[in-house]
Write a protein that binds this DNA or RNA. Structure first.
Lengths: 211, 211
DNA sequence: TCGTTTATGTGAATCATTATACAATAAAAA
DNA sequence: TTTTTATTGTATAATGATTCACATAAACGA
């Protein structure tokens, strides 16, 4: 299974949950394709490769699909604990975002180097000094961190996360982090979100539209 | 030129600017490749397709590369004006982010429906009521908007942006927006950034590592 | 019951991307 | 000057993803 396919599966999964909440029971490949912005052929191909089958002429059963895709995506009833490292404006904004709960993701703590930030008690989750990173990560079995520190602190913070045993990072700093295999040859999973880069790409595409 | 290639070119461009600011004058394909996280072959291939040439054994001249790539990316001295629609926590955090300036992107205004938000005078850029959208967009020649409204307001806000003549949108809401051709057959450029989806993908990749 | 319609499932064909391999070339070394 | 070395530039091969095309099956209608 390649990366694009994971993205599509995750999309299908969310769309299906929406359709279910609207009361639908069946879905056709081309409906799902429209909603996910892909072709119907690829939806059928994806399901075919995943050995998920529908009914000829009847489409796919939504509940069955949700169960099958959820299994593939590793969905459990237990929420996944994550932390936010760097509690500036962006980090704090994400702390207040309540769109993670439906996806089974729970922010359990923030970390910052600034005592003015971590001493306040006004945040939706506790904020700790960086020195307590290892302790919280291991006691709460945290695998994934959101990194929202300033550019200059990116490399150091990332290194600390790796040392603390974090396995996945969602990095919002403009420095592109690259996975480096650890002593056991395991590579962390890193997603870089670079907002300025996204805007630049939009401007490029506006200037030189395709076809 | 395909989409992946644009992303790479934008990456090269930023890396080259960093290298230049460090005082370097030449760069080899494999250096750039390492920094951009791709193979050296693909760097050479990209440049070859763009008809950008280096010196055999001497690598590429950084200033020349920056000029050539800047031209391709449509870089001008004039900053590009953008607006932020939806001035909740995320929108306001982006307003304060100062990493756009070096890329020639300038946030000129925010928009919100809430009088409590747009009446305050504590923001780094003016915040207007949504009713003034069309006026500001046309008077400042704004082509691109960042959309940071709650999920429930996404479709409506997006429609208003399209009506106001916005051509590119960076959408942070969990609803995936799709480009729809307007009366003249032109499609807006839309980039969707879905933070929960990114996290879900990280969890997936952690659970089922590739190879 | 028997065509007709509709949608799935999938092998084959097409298209796109990336890697490989190496000739060409220039600099450095001998 | 000649040889060695390092790197570009690109043709070709390999790989991978997507679409096409159609056989297959189920439901519907007459």
């Amino acid at each position: 299974m390649n990366h694009d396919m994971i993205i599509r599966i995750t999309r299908y999964y969310r769309i299906l949950n929406r359709l279910r909440s609207l009361g639908l029971e069946k879905v056709f490949a081309h409906n799902l394709a429209d909603a996910a912005g892909v072709s119907a052929a690829i939806v059928r191909k994806d399901f075919s490769l995943l050995e998920i089958y529908g009914q000829k002429r009847g489409g796919y059963d939504i509940l069955f699909l949700i169960a099958a895709l959820g299994k593939i995506l590793g969905k459990t009833d237990e929420p996944q604990n994550i932390i936010i490292v760097g509690c500036g404006r962006i980090g704090r904004a994400l702390m207040h975002y309540n769109g993670f709960e439906p996806d089974g993701i729970r922010i359990i703590a923030g970390f910052d180097t600034d005592p003015l930030v971590y001493s306040e008690n006004v945040h939706p989750v506790p904020i700790y000094p960086m020195s307590r990173l290892e302790e919280v990560v291991s006691s709460h079995q945290v695998d994934v961190a959101i990194l929202t520190v300033p550019e200059s602190a990116t490399s150091d913070s990332f290194q600390r996360l790796m040392n603390a045993g974090i396995k996945g990072v969602l990095n919002f700093s403009p420095i592109t982090l690259k996975p480096v295999a650890d002593a056991e040859g395991l590579k962390p999973v890193i997603h870089n979100v670079n907002i300025a880069l996204e805007l630049e790409q939009i401007f490029y595409e506006l200037q030189f539209p395709k076809t």
